[in-house]
Computed example of a mutant assay.
Amino acid sequence: MTTICSVKYNGQTAIAGDGQVTLGKSIIAKTTAKKIRRIYHDQVVIGFAGGVADAVSLQEMLEGKLESYSGDLRRAAVEMAQSWRKDPTLQKLEAMVIAFNDQDLLLISGNGEVLEPDE
Rank of each mutant, 00 (worst) to 15 (best):
D42H: 04
Y40Q: 06
D87A: 01
E119I: 00
L62D: 03
I46N: 00
N111L: 13
K35L: 03
D118N: 10
G19R: 10
Q12D: 09
E119K: 04
R37M: 10
T31W: 03
G24A: 03
D54S: 12
G64I: 06
V21K: 08
G112C: 06
G110L: 05
T31E: 11
D18P: 04
E119P: 00
V7E: 08
A81I: 09
A81P: 02
E60T: 00
A95Y: 02
I15R: 00
Q20A: 15
S26F: 13
A16Y: 13
M1W: 05
E79R: 11
Q82I: 15
L105S: 04
I28L: 10
E60K: 05
D18T: 12
S83N: 13
I27V: 14
A76R: 07
R37Y: 08
Q82W: 14
S57F: 12
Q20L: 15
P88Q: 02
G71Y: 08
T22G: 12
R75S: 07
Q103K: 15
T22H: 12
L23R: 09
P117H: 03
G47E: 01
V78I: 13
D42M: 00
I36E: 10
A99M: 08
E79L: 14
R85M: 11
Y9K: 13
Y40G: 08
G112Y: 11
K35Q: 12
P117A: 06
S70N: 11
H41D: 13
E113S: 14
G51Q: 06
L62A: 10
K65Q: 15
I15Q: 00
E60I: 00
T3S: 10
K35M: 04
A95M: 02
D104E: 13
T31L: 06
L106R: 02
K86N: 15
E94S: 15
L73F: 04
